[in-house]
Design a protein around this nucleic acid. Structure first.
Lengths: 371, 371
DNA sequence: TCTGTCCGTGAATCGACTA
DNA sequence: TTAGTCGATTCACGGACAG
């Protein structure tokens, strides 16, 4: 450890600038043990095949940029190992790193982090409130991305602002899954043509939580895959210093323009979506999955005129009708619609109980243990 | 592929039993390409601080922390690679695997899956509604575990019951983040002393969703780390066959007792919603042959912008375009493809009716009077 | 100014069958 | 093996525009 003060050390650093060129070379040229936090959003190596269309036949604007293409897993691994090694040299002994990725690359990144000597503190799941659906119905909606938070070394005294995060989370301890919307609307940067300036711009709310939680004011944050500069923008707002590295000139240009407009502590720009939620939706299927009702069990209508049997996928089957609790109720009553939750009952110990009671139980659980 | 029937193949398998001993040896003794789905919850604390032995079985002297760390990861990787390789040999060509883990091991498992030739379909986050809090306030509450779903090969026709999962989720397609409670209460198995029988018993709700989504009734499900048998229990309920492998006698005993009590749901209850893809194909020409539509009659596009005339052979002719209902629809819209069934309408009694209605009529007849 | 409707779009490893 | 054809498939928002 050097005996220089923070200020002296930092004067050797190109603070609050964007460096061009290759991130590994650039990192190797910076002084060791000088960075408090690294946030990295490396290429995901998506390996996309053909085009994809939405059901309305519009074409999905996929990530087909050259920077995301690697010849093989081996070459991706090599690249990952190299930049993680360079990054680790830059970290102060109590420094930490965040890396974000999807299932295409995150397992390789996580293994490389461990191999290089980083110590994983948490994996954090960014659950997207508005992800792109799976258009062909062939897989689960890809509704999350994974972030890995790791300290430089095992046993390091990393920064973790527990109380600040708890406050951000309405007084409850922050969990490893964060629900945040993707970057859209005015926040999404456009190029001269009005197209999105970067295919994978991250929302500021995500970086806000990362930086509040794992840095202090005055800390130096490095982003080796700077893109359009979300990390820099949020760092500047929050009074942290940043260093960006970005190879593509077009991205640097957009980022520079963006950063000029940012003011420190501009609270308005830091809106963290805390939209008051309505009563959470509870799918009927959860009552079956949770064993509150059994497949094969019979439900009875409130008026006792109809009955239907529960199937393993949470649909009902009655006389000649099958479908959701709402649809079957409506068809049996000859009504245009029906609230299945209040229409159907089940039997327990000789008593008839509305299924809505079970939904209330689940909601009560969710209230007791929010999030 | 063999020409044996499912029944013949399955008689070679120790169905619905728990095998003892080492899972890799046991897997190697089973016939190849015989398993539809594998669900695996591998241990991650395997000798994590243990000794590393050279190939000649001499012990490596752990000189420093870095080497010790490397040694433990190395041995875990070896173990992971070995069981994944054995598992892959057992899978049918269209078989698939689920592996569950936490940040301690899931990155190494995911990378090994990719290295062994599995093709990742999704990573799915089990988001625990009631996790254990982080008592020391040093990290985020560890509130999720990660599951990886992968097919044996790229391009395989894996099983995915899209409509059943959608039904389970109240009509909205299932996402990659599942909110389910951890295993507690009566479901949590106890040993003779009243202590929990297994440290990481998985909830049945989790397996219910996995098995409904990625198997069909009669499929064979293997769990090489059977534990107290949640996979077997849910498989039995859902009319799937299982094979369990478990090394610890205490767990096998608890699992056996548990499985005895399980009853399979009745047949109706196991029927789930299916997609239109599974419905029989109806050529458009049949509507003309059956006199439901007449040659010379005009069809109108959904958006009323186009029309075309029906020809006797079941093709359409519009302005400068002729061909199938799909081809003409696509060309008129300038779209890469078009589902003619939902695109075209005909007129009856002044009303506009989608031609798909006629197809539904034919399909209903086919169901009532097969062949 | 407000409300309702329509349209656009987001890190995506997104067919099956027959000739 | 390949080419052609059939035909299945989407959720949450934000912005623009019309009334």
């Amino acid at each position: 450890m050097t005996t220089k003060t923070r200020k002296e050390r930092n004067t050797a650093l190109p603070l609050n600038t964007i460096l061009d060129g290759d991130c590994i070379e650039r990192m190797n040229a910076l002084p060791e043990a000088s960075i408090d936090l690294i946030f990295a959003d490396p290429p995901y190596n998506l390996q996309l095949r053909g085009d994809l269309h939405r059901p309305d036949n519009s074409k999905v604007d996929a990530v087909d940029d050259a920077w995301d293409r690697f010849a093989s897993f081996e070459s991706y691994d090599q690249f990952t190992k190299a930049w993680l090694k360079a990054a680790r040299r830059l970290l102060k002994p109590n420094g930490a790193i965040w890396v974000i990725g999807s299932y295409h690359n995150i397992f390789r990144v996580g293994a490389a982090l461990q191999n290089e000597g980083y110590w994983i503190l948490n994996d954090v799941v960014w659950r997207k409130s508005n992800p792109m659906p799976n258009f062909r119905g062939k897989r689960f909606t890809n509704a999350h991305e994974t972030m890995i938070w790791a300290s430089r070394d095992e046993g390091a005294k990393y920064t973790f602002n527990y109380e600040a995060l708890k406050a951000l989370n309405e007084g409850v301890q922050m969990r490893s899954d964060w629900v945040l919307p993707i970057c859209t609307g005015h926040e999404r940067l456009k190029d001269e043509n009005g197209d999105k300036a970067h295919p994978t711009q991250k929302p500021e709310s995500l970086l806000h939580r990362v930086l509040i939680g794992s840095t202090n004011p005055g800390d130096v944050v490095l982003d080796p895959f700077f893109g359009t500069g979300t990390t820099g923008a949020v760092a500047k707002m929050l009074g942290r210093d940043f260093i960006g590295i970005e190879r593509e000139e077009a991205y640097r240009k957009v980022a520079l323009k963006r950063l000029e407009k940012i003011r420190k502590y501009d609270k308005d720009a830091l809106q963290v979506s805390t939209s008051k939620r309505a009563e959470p939706r509870v799918p009927f299927g959860q009552l079956i999955e949770r064993g509150m009702l059994r497949p094969g069990e019979e439900l009875f209508s409130m008026n006792k005129r109809h009955k239907a049997k529960i199937r393993a996928d949470g649909t009902l089957i009655g006389d000649d009708v099958k479908g959701s609790i709402h649809k079957v109720g409506a068809e049996l009553e000859g009504a245009p619609s029906c609230n299945g939750w209040t229409y159907w009952c089940f039997r327990r110990d000789g008593k008839t109980v509305p299924i809505d009671v079970l939904r209330q139980q689940i909601r009560a659980e969710m209230r007791d243990r929010p999030n």
